[in-house]
Design a protein around this nucleic acid. Structure first.
Lengths: 154, 154
DNA sequence: GGCTTGCTTGGAGTGCACTCCAACCTCATA
DNA sequence: TATGAGGTTGGAGTGCACTCCAAGCAAGCC
């Protein structure tokens, strides 16, 4: 029985330090050699194979290429998309909304405005979320300093 | 059939502007008159009555006082606790961990160190979360400005 | 007294986002 | 040729955090 790994990247992104405001993440292999197996994508994204297949089933992934034996072969574009999706996920955006965005992408350029609106409202949510968290941080700090004052050691 | 309200405070916190680093939230009524019904607490906290009762069942609430007919009467202390719990919740802390913290509180002063540790590690999580969100914000901004450049109107 | 409103309970149900299962296939190595 | 590792599928199962239900009680008003 294989233990399902959820740990982040094993293949390291290898971002050169000299590129300053460069596109955020490099790919493990250059374009042309980008036919990753599902387990390579697992290692790179930190998602499980289950989740990757499930994303595809629900329409959150554009169609992934297949090998002659029917196995998935992910491209650098797919990796970029997964990176973006992962970012959206951790804003707390529901999967259904991300599927909606994926549909807009599939529908082509005439959905630019709607896509932008969706991202703009997500942006607002993220800002709110950050504000809430900073608020929480203040509360935590007050409590922590209370506990630090009292019970000095145990 | 009564519609269950999830909207925030109807009774406004009314924080006076002159107190600078004052305790964060005021109570709807002063100590001594703080025997709130469940629906008042719903209005003040934005939690549902279901959730309030459920919190109590799972041990996330210290024992709430009761009226002579057995109805819950929440105190200002209870409101403070709920405010804190709500803050913890939106850091993404699992309810089980908050129950653990509540247990520590019930156990008394000798758990100060453990409580502090728990809060310190939560604090770390919150900082990480903020960093992630700021990262996401950058990604969103890049995408948004792309969509703003193309498709100027529609 | 009858009605409405608001509260009580234990237990069952819901929705989301995975997560796992069983049965099967393909390929590389011993 | 056997074995093991890694892949495939549809569908069922899981865990979390609520969320709802049915039946009942208590108080206030017409």
């Amino acid at each position: 029985m294989t233990v399902m790994q959820t740990t982040p990247a094993t293949i390291e992104p290898a971002t050169p330090a000299d590129i300053c405001s460069a596109p955020p993440r490099r790919h493990p292999r250059p374009d042309g050699e980008d036919r990753y197996t599902i387990s390579e994508v697992v290692a790179f994204t930190g998602l499980t194979a289950h989740t990757l297949r499930w994303y595809e089933r629900i329409g959150l992934m554009p169609h992934v290429d297949r090998s002659h034996t029917g196995q998935r072969r992910y491209s650098n574009r797919d990796l970029d998309w997964l990176g973006f999706v992962t970012k959206l996920r951790l804003t707390g955006m529901p999967v259904a909304d991300m599927v909606r965005y994926a549909e807009l992408v599939r529908e082509g350029e005439h959905t630019y405005a709607e896509r932008r609106d969706l991202l703009v409202s997500t942006r607002r949510d993220v800002l709110d979320r950050i504000a809430e968290l900073q608020d929480t941080l203040a509360v935590l700090d007050r409590k922590i300093s209370f506990y630090a004052m009292e019970g000095t050691t145990r």
